[in-house]
Design a binder for these strands. Sequence first.
DNA 1: ATGCCTGAAGGGTTCAGA
Length: 292
Amino acid sequence: MTTVEPVRVATWNVNSVKQRVPRLLPWLDQRQPDVVCLQETKLADDAFTALLEAPLKERGYEFALFGETQWNGVALLSRVGLEDVAVGIAGAPGFPHVEARAVAATCGGVRVHSLYVPNGREPDSDHYKYKLEWLAALRDVLEAGPADALVCGDINIAPADADLFDPAAYIGHTHVTEPERAALQAIEALGFHDVVRERWPDKRIFSYWDYRAGMFHRDLGMRIDLILASSSVAPRAEAAWIDRHARKGTGPSDHAPVIVDLDEAPDGDIGPVVPPPSASGGNKKVKLPQSK
DNA sequence: ATGCCTGAAGGGTTCAGA
């Protein structure tokens, strides 16, 4: 079933949800997202539930979790339905055990993936190979999945040099190598659109700033947290931005949330919105906004 | 120094992050 309501979707690497509760709950109240993908929760599922079940339920959210005690951990919050939850990426390798890096569900008619892609550490390391294999498995899952989909999360790849404060400083490092960017492009070749970059083609926009050395205040960051919308969903993206405000102040994550507002499903999915002229009598004509 | 912060585990320090 396809939703007819506008939906606000966000993704945020919170760098320990336990430490971030004083920022997360006010941010939910302020931004009112309908679907929230969290990464680096760093909390086992029972501890997450004990910590957040009450405040999330109070705000109308159901949630799906894939956590572990120390590292990684992803979550998916939704107040527009949470169906067919899938934990992990089928066919993806572990390191060596399967890490808590993916959870997906269908929310308001859209398949939403909350992802924490492996870091890669050093090019050609075992961890780097793991990252590339993991991304290849993700691509296959997306190819086999529903057409209406959103890929959200800490992708740990800067799609282009414009997504780095100092491209020269990153040459030879992970997040920018050709195989990593090719893995992202293989996902985009399925029809996925980087909706934030498409909305702000020339803007300096980052989603991560190192805690050290005043990097945020000097706006020296990277854009590695992405929302990719499938070809059927991308036209519904009415707004797309990075919520830099959430990186300010006391006790922030080192990542900022990324937010996309989806307008209601297109006419073809929900029937005509405007009645035919013969049924509208003497209504004056109005100029409709051009669809993008 | 070549990780300048931050967080987790668990122990008085180490590993991880990008």
